[in-house]
């Protein structure tokens, strides 16, 4: 029972942020939901081994990023085309459906189209940044130095800005 209530609490608090990271990896809504499901399953399976060595958020993000990377590998194994042109519109679920929300969806769609063209590791770095994860925690999640995270972030943000400049011109 304790495992169940802990699990429920973790999922309730983190489901949206898990899903948002999946958006940076999987374009297709159905496949994204499958990956999301797989992450929920992996969290359940890993819960018995959670000893609190890392913060819950760090633990959740590790499972999320590692499952997303595994998904990309599975795609490779199936010899399926990993969509990097991002020509398909991303089907995102938002709270409201008013005009403002439509504009917001359009913006987010543009952002994810760009993120999905990045390499798998860069996607993880920028997704964590967008989740407001600190550089220190990102470094713990990825297992690299904080300096490395900062350099990567700088490079990725520059690349995304260049893409935006190209779009505007």
């Amino acid at each position: 029972m304790e495992k169940e209530s802990t699990y429920k609490e973790i999922i309730k608090l983190n489901r949206d942020r898990i899903y948002r990271i999946c958006c940076g990896y999987v374009h297709n809504a159905d496949e994204r939901n499958d990956v999301f499901q797989e992450i929920l399953i992996n969290i359940w399976k890993s819960l018995d081994n959670f000893r609190g060595q890392a913060a819950v958020s760090t633990w959740i993000y590790r499972i999320t990023v590692n499952t997303c990377l595994s998904y990309l590998r599975t795609e490779q194994r199936r010899n399926r085309h990993i969509d990097r042109d991002a020509s398909e519109t991303i089907d995102l679920l938002t709270e409201d459906n008013n005009e403002e929300s439509e504009e917001q969806k359009h913006l987010l769609d543009r952002l994810y189209r760009r993120i999905i063209t990045l390499s798998p590791i860069d996607r993880a770095v920028i997704s964590l940044y967008l989740e407001d994860v600190s550089t220190k925690e990102s470094a713990e999640i990825l297992g690299i130095s904080e300096a490395n995270v900062r350099v990567k972030l700088h490079r990725i943000r520059k690349a995304l800005k260049e893409m935006e400049d190209d779009y505007e011109n």
């Binding site: 489901r15 949206d16 898990i18 899903y19 948002r20 958006c23 939901n33 499958d34 999301f36 499901q37 929920l40 995102l92 679920l93 938002t94 709270e95 409201d96 929300s101 917001q104 913006l107 987010l108 543009r110 952002l111 920028i126 940044y129 967008l130 407001d132 943000r157 995304l160 800005k161 935006e164």
Partner: peptide, 21 residues
Amino acid sequence: MKIDDIKKQRFAIKAPHAKME
């Protein structure tokens, strides 16, 4: 579009309910 401007808007994305239900 600046990354930091869109950061907050991104939090509007909600996860769907588990597929099996």
